[in-house]
């Protein structure tokens, strides 16, 4: 089976035009791959570019040079150069992403926020909502909250909605940006179980986990991001 994710010689910098065009290098020569059924973890101190790498893989940040090759059903797409339409198709069918924070949409109930990725894939409304409810129950989100928009939820409750939304599909590649950061021990354990189930199902996972217990419980391999640090040049 083809490797679902291959990252090759990727470099990224930010140019801050509002601050005299100062150039902030983030990472360079990022090269690694993630196999199906494996959970690789991006390691290294804060600010080293871990989240930026995940965002590049999701098409959320642009890539200066290099390739991000995502393979699904024998079709390989380079996210770094793909047009917006292809990136959206890949997000719908191949790459899931759990961000650090939930971006809430006014008036949309938590259960519908979670069900949305399934609806986008054409699953019937009722079935999608049932799946969403099952996951929210598993993550111990009280049922009275399901029909409310998550804007007023606590940080931990929002994070669980976010996790449910990311885990509801059977996307073959899942990117996790500190999914357990604001969770208590019981819910962290639930997330660990969810990640293990994904691995058994053959999903390739790439995550950032600052929580050492979680990292040790799920990581097959640590990718040291400090090896990709771009030299900090004088601006």
């Amino acid at each position: 089976m083809a490797t679902p994710l291959v990252v090759s010689e990727v470099a990224k910098s930010f140019t801050m035009h509002l601050r005299d065009g100062i150039r902030l290098p983030v990472v360079e020569n990022v090269s690694f791959s993630v196999a199906a059924g494996e959970c690789a973890v991006l390691g290294g101190p804060s600010g080293i570019g871990k989240s930026s790498i995940l965002k590049m893989l999701y098409g959320n940040y642009s890539v200066d040079t290099g390739q991000v090759l995502i393979t699904h059903n024998d079709v390989t797409v380079d996210i770094a150069s793909a047009d917006p339409r292809s990136v959206l198709t890949i997000r719908r069918d191949v790459v899931g992403y759990v961000s650090q924070f939930l971006r809430t949409v006014p008036r949309v109930a938590a259960v519908d926020v979670v069900a949305e990725p399934l609806l986008a894939k054409g699953v019937a409304h009722e079935e999608a909502r049932d799946c969403a409810g099952d996951l929210l129950a598993r993550l111990n989100l009280p049922e009275r909250l399901w029909s409310l928009p998550p804007a007023t939820f606590s940080g931990g409750e929002q994070q669980r909605v976010n996790i449910a939304r990311g885990f509801i599909t059977d996307h073959p590649l899942l990117l996790l940006d500190e999914p357990t950061a604001s969770l208590d021990a019981a819910n962290r354990a639930v997330v660990v179980d969810l990640i293990r189930a994904k691995k058994e199902a053959g999903t390739a996972l790439l995550g950032i986990f600052h929580d050492q217990d979680v990292r040790e419980a799920v990581a097959d391999r640590i990718i040291d991001v400090s090896l990709f640090s771009a030299p900090k040049e004088a601006a």
Binding site: F14, T15, M16, H17, L18, K55, G59, N60, Y61, S62, P84, V87, L88
Partner: peptide, 21 residues
């Protein structure tokens, strides 16, 4: 011109950066 979240989260052009900021 690009994917909406890419343009908003990683704006490239000086004017887009000004708008987003």
């Amino acid at each position: 011109h690009g994917l909406t979240d890419r343009v908003l989260d990683d704006p490239r052009e000086p004017y887009t950066q000004l708008l987003v900021s």
